[in-house]
Design a protein around this nucleic acid. Structure first.
Lengths: 134, 134
DNA sequence: ATTTCAAATGCAACTTTGTTGCAAATATAG
DNA sequence: CTATATTTGCAACAAAGTTGCATTTGAAAT
């Protein structure tokens, strides 16, 4: 599906900022930070516009954020677009890149009585195969 | 173990800020934010001192941080102090409190070839038993 | 008890990240 | 092509976190 179609399906106006963000995220093989996405866009958008676009796309479940730490947020396409299952994410302490681990499907954990789960996030920190070799 | 002893065991100077932070975290039944800890301390410390104290305590594995989202960090005693196993954390979307789920012990996930794990973080978002009732 | 000195603190200045209100610009339905 | 609700860019602000440096302090040695 093309970025424009995704926006249309979610009743969102087709603006170049939104379309660009989706396009960049779609073409990446890993999660990207706000700055990485900005660099890959042709046009330079205002910070405000950028934040609001991310917010909108997140609210409509087109993209989802992966919080690595309180200073680093990365974005990837949402499962509803990619048809992936809920999966764990891997953060490489070396190259600091985030990857979706499609094979690491998230299993619900047993909770204390009275607790209900809505979402489970798993972030595995370690070293990726590329960095391991060096 | 008392805060002063913990500091001594880690070759850290016994300053009132560090001792206070440990004391407050120890006496809480859940993870606390920087602001919650500050409010519970008698003396008011500079933001810088505060941050540096947290950093030091974290580096020495006396406390550990739980990143709820990029705007919210909570602190709890580290497993090395409490003798707990690596466990999942629960964030209540309603009361916004974080609890350690000692029963939800973290099991290592299968990773793609060449990847190595160092730490696995699990954050479960949902509604806690107290908020469920209301 | 006093001295000594590395380590910790407080302050000022700064950076990064994210938000809000509002006027101007723009996407899209008719 | 026009009307209008949405989106954008700007300015101003708020919160979170960092750095350099002079001053203070914990604790080890005298």
């Amino acid at each position: 599906m093309k970025p424009a179609d995704i926006l249309y399906n979610h009743n969102l106006k087709r603006t170049s900022c939104r379309e660009g963000i989706i396009e960049v995220i779609m073409s990446a093989d890993r999660a990207l930070s706000e700055n990485e996405i900005r660099k890959r866009l042709k046009v330079n958008y205002d910070r405000t516009t950028f934040y609001r676009s991310f917010k909108t796309l997140e609210e409509h479940k087109i993209i989802h954020r992966i919080v690595v730490d309180n200073q680093t947020v990365k974005y990837a396409l949402d499962n509803s677009i990619t048809n992936k299952k809920e999966h764990a994410h891997f953060y490489c302490n070396d190259c600091q890149e985030v990857q979706c681990l499609e094979s690491a499907v998230i299993r619900k954990m047993q909770l204390p009585a009275g607790y209900t789960e809505e979402e489970t996030e798993i972030l595995i920190r370690g070293t990726c195969s590329l960095c391991k070799r060096n």
